[in-house]
Simulated assay, not measured.
Amino acid sequence: MKKNMGSMDRIIRVILAAIMAYLYFTNVITGTLGLVLIILAGVFVLTSFISFCPLYAPFGIKTCKTQ
């Protein structure tokens, strides 16, 4: 599994995940949409930590400078 995410992409994903988590845990967004957003936030954080996005691979997208 080669890295395909750059540092700016990772930072943006973590910020978006934090916003989604804040909206969910302050009950601004609830129900099914809230659940979907909190799951998406988890995926964003996970992909940021491993620097690999599975959706980028089939399209050949790489936002990292190396490789």
Rank of each mutant, 00 (worst) to 15 (best):
M1N: 03
K2A: 01
K2P: 03
K3I: 03
N4R: 08
N4V: 05
N4I: 04
M5S: 08
G6C: 12
S7M: 09
M8D: 07
M8Q: 10
M8T: 15
D9G: 05
D9C: 15
D9Q: 06
R10F: 02
I11F: 14
I11M: 15
I11V: 14
I11D: 07
I11S: 11
R13K: 13
R13P: 11
R13M: 09
I15T: 07
I15V: 14
I15A: 09
A17S: 13
A17H: 07
A18D: 11
A18P: 04
I19W: 07
I19F: 13
M20F: 13
M20K: 03
A21Y: 08
A21L: 12
L23P: 05
L23Y: 13
Y24K: 14
Y24T: 11
Y24I: 13
N27P: 00
N27D: 15
V28K: 13
V28P: 04
V28T: 12
T30H: 07
G31E: 04
G31I: 02
G31F: 08
G31N: 09
T32Q: 08
T32I: 15
T32G: 07
G34H: 14
G34W: 15
L35A: 04
L35C: 05
V36E: 00
V36A: 12
L37E: 01
L37V: 00
L37I: 01
